[in-house]
Design a protein around this nucleic acid. Structure first.
Lengths: 229, 229
DNA sequence: ATGCGCCTTATTGGATCCAATACACCGTAC
DNA sequence: GTACGGTGTATTGGATCCAATAAGGCGCAT
């Protein structure tokens, strides 16, 4: 499971167009270009790709099953809004699943990944831009899971990340840089345990890291008010 | 989240036909009518429903995103085979997520659900048929999660159950009834904790129950050999 | 001025058809 | 008799079109 968001459906390939459309929409939702509550019109997306509505419809089915859109008969697709408790529980799901993904990944990571993780973390520490931080943070974590051979687990982890991406961004925009040192310290502890191939330590640091983020996020109810259309 | 398998996609409704087709295929896969490795031809399914291929294609996209089918460009859909380690990890995922679903569900369960759970467990104890046991066992567990208000968590739990259903059935067919008393004892302990609304006990008993099943299942490599087409 | 009902338009669901791709079978050659 | 290549068929991906549904706007009445 590479650092970049990969198509997560079970097969490696549906129709090329529907996969590309699904990928585009997934990225648009994750980047905030399409915000919670916003409708997605099949005709608009089809026009943007110079394609017919059919691959767009298939793409929307995929995203719906991934939890990134919700559908109502004859009403079209919309990006769902999550409330604070829903996001809190999704973070608890991450708290429980990601350490398992990390443990499954560790045996399959090598020096090449360790070097890339060191580089990413150094760039996180040097960074001052929120959007870049979000991208690097995601890349850091997903790369530690990249060695996990279980597609079900990998795809669920990515799905949980995708579901909460909007709220992570909103939360980061609300917070100042004051807590960056905590994130960096935790990342360094995780990275150290990964390089030592100490699954017990790595799982514990990671679980604590996600839990701390979850609790900080839940202290910002205003992160759940935006995105209204 | 009712005991019956419910359509799990984010929206409550796509086109009625594609939802019905997805539901039918899901049931066919869960019941073993379509086994791992078997191909699913769009034309065959369309003919069975007296419909065109389009809702069938949409249904297949949904199932693929649920992990129940895998797809290759121009090759059609197939139910994937899982190996012993993949099933083992999926059970570990269940071990971690289902206690969370149970904890989220508990505050919303009432006397009506408790009565139904008692009835289901009594029928499990009186039962001697494997297929019926599988159905009742699933109904028992999913009913304890029925009060969980977080759709992401509920749908992931059902998805994990669906992914391993074939191997549970194969395993039950291989085992004798000798271990039934263990299942019943664990169910009774879970039920007692649920009725006392003791989330800590309920989570612990449930986690142990799933873990024991996982370990017993992993001791039967022959459960992973069947289903070859 | 506001509310309700009706009509029209926008959007989606499904059918049909055509193009493309993959696989299987048959024929020929060695 | 076996292997390889070519062709045809089966199946899927996407385009187009029609039917159905929902929502919004407009007009009329109170």
């Amino acid at each position: 499971m590479p650092g970049q968001t990969k198509q997560m459906a079970g097969g490696d390939q549906n129709g090329a167009v529907s996969q590309r459309v699904a990928g585009y929409l997934r990225e648009a939702i994750l980047s905030g270009e399409i915000v919670p509550g916003e409708r997605i019109r099949q005709e608009d997306v089809a026009a943007r790709f110079g394609t017919s509505r059919l691959p767009v419809r298939e793409a929307l089915r995929i995203l719906e099953a991934e939890g990134l859109t919700e559908h109502h008969m004859h009403k079209g697709a919309r990006v769902p809004r999550l409330d604070r408790h829903e996001v809190d529980v999704i973070y608890q799901m991450r708290e429980r699943l990601e350490p398992l993904a990390l443990a499954e990944s560790l045996p399959h990571l090598g020096e090449e990944q360790f070097r890339r993780l060191e580089d990413i973390q150094a760039r996180i520490e040097a960074n001052t831009d929120i959007a870049e931080f979000l991208a690097l943070d995601r890349e850091f974590h997903l790369l530690t899971y990249a060695g996990c051979p279980i597609e079900h687990l990998s795809s669920m982890v990515v799905r949980l990340w995708n579901s909460t991406q909007h709220y992570r961004r909103t939360f980061m925009n609300l917070s100042g840089p004051a807590r960056r040192w905590v994130v960096n310290a935790e990342h360094r502890l995780i990275l150290d345990a990964v390089e030592r191939r100490d699954a017990v330590d790595a799982e514990r640091y990671l679980s604590g890291h996600i839990r701390r983020t979850r609790i900080e996020l839940s202290r910002h109810p205003e992160a759940f008010e935006g995105g209204r259309v």
